[in-house]
């Protein structure tokens, strides 16, 4: 194992995999969720086009995890010097630490986006039947955001506290 971690360039590779995971999984989760909330929104708009603006807000909500994933990836790449053109020389252990640092955002980002999408789709149902209660649907869906923010926070703290 020690020999494996000492392989030249492996540290930076691990770190880049971490950045990729954060952007990839959070992005996939958001894309899926925005997709099915969009389907629900289109269903409502097909019957009542005047509700477009109200359901649009709900559709946008699960898109934030993709942005958090992107932010995490950029911060990580910046920290290891890939953005800027002078990559740091990382040991295998350091690289692995960066990879682990990105995982909260990757994993929680993916699942919270899907869950938020389901809550938002249910909110679209509220908007369809009782448009005056649209705000409640938004609040219920927004609650899921908390966990994506917590994951983002821990990923950022880890990325900035790993000594190079």
């Amino acid at each position: 194992m020690n020999n494996l971690l000492a392989v030249n360039g492996l540290g930076i590779t691990f770190a880049i995999v971490g950045a990729v995971c954060a952007a990839l999984f959070a992005g996939i989760g958001s894309a899926k969720a925005v997709g099915f909330v969009g389907e629900a929104a289109a269903g409502v708009v097909s019957v009542d086009p005047s509700k477009f603006s109200k359901v649009l807000i709900l559709q946008l909500l699960p898109g934030t995890q993709g942005l958090y994933g992107l932010l995490t990836a950029i911060l990580l790449l910046s920290r290891i010097g890939v953005i800027g053109g002078s990559p740091a020389e990382l040991t295998g252990i350091q690289g692995l630490m960066f990879l682990l640092a990105a995982l909260p955002m990757a994993v929680v980002g993916y699942f919270s986006a899907i869950m938020q999408g389901k809550a938002a789709a249910a909110g679209v149902g509220i908007t369809a039947k009782k448009p005056e209660h649209n705000g409640k649907g938004i609040i219920l869906a927004a609650m899921v955001e908390t966990y994506a923010i917590l994951a983002l926070l821990i990923s950022i703290l880890l990325i900035y506290n790993i000594s190079i």
Binding site: V37, G43, V44, S46, V47, G125
Partner: peptide, 15 residues
């Protein structure tokens, strides 16, 4: 998450 669009349309029609 099947039929998200159909269910939302039905919810609108229920009004």
């Amino acid at each position: 998450t099947e039929y998200a669009s159909a269910v939302a349309a039905v919810r609108a029609m229920e009004c």
